[in-house]
């Protein structure tokens, strides 16, 4: 048993030299600044009629949602620390964004249905 204790202490003191690697505050502040800029970009994209520049209907909402995706990616990678995650963590973080378009694609079938007017309350 004494042998085990020694072994344990050795491991602990060894581990102490390898403290948990935390993300420096400066990284969080940079990402926060980026998110703020992107927030203003989102509102800006809402007020400028982009379809006048490039004739694509609904371009504004597409641009706004693309900016939202960039913002979400920044949060996932740095705030949620996926950037430093293991491969398994990377995979799990990614599958959400694979399954979601899959579901949207499959259930997008609703677009092709005939609609009847529902009775109100």
């Amino acid at each position: 048993m004494a042998k085990h204790s020694e072994h344990s202490e050795a491991v602990v003191s060894h581990e102490e030299h390898h403290e948990h690697h935390y993300t420096p505050t400066s990284h969080f502040l940079v990402v926060f600044g980026f998110l703020m800029i992107m927030l203003f970009a989102t509102v800006g994209a809402a007020f400028v009629d982009l379809s006048k520049v490039v004739p694509i209907p609904g371009l504004n909402i597409i641009v706004m949602l693309l900016i939202a995706t960039v913002k979400a990616s920044a949060v996932v990678l740095v705030f949620m620390e996926v950037r430093k995650g293991t491969r398994l963590v990377w995979m799990w973080a990614a599958v959400g964004f694979v399954w979601l378009p899959t579901m949207l694609g499959i259930l997008g079938d609703y677009f092709t249905r005939n609609w009847t007017t529902a009775r109100p309350w």
Binding site: A68, V75, F79
Partner: peptide, 19 residues
């Protein structure tokens, strides 16, 4: 952070649709 991400999408989708 997930709750934050949901709002990041809700804001442009609901509020900024045609401001």
């Amino acid at each position: 952070h997930f709750v934050d991400i949901v709002w990041i999408f809700l804001y442009p989708a609901l509020y900024l649709a045609h401001p």
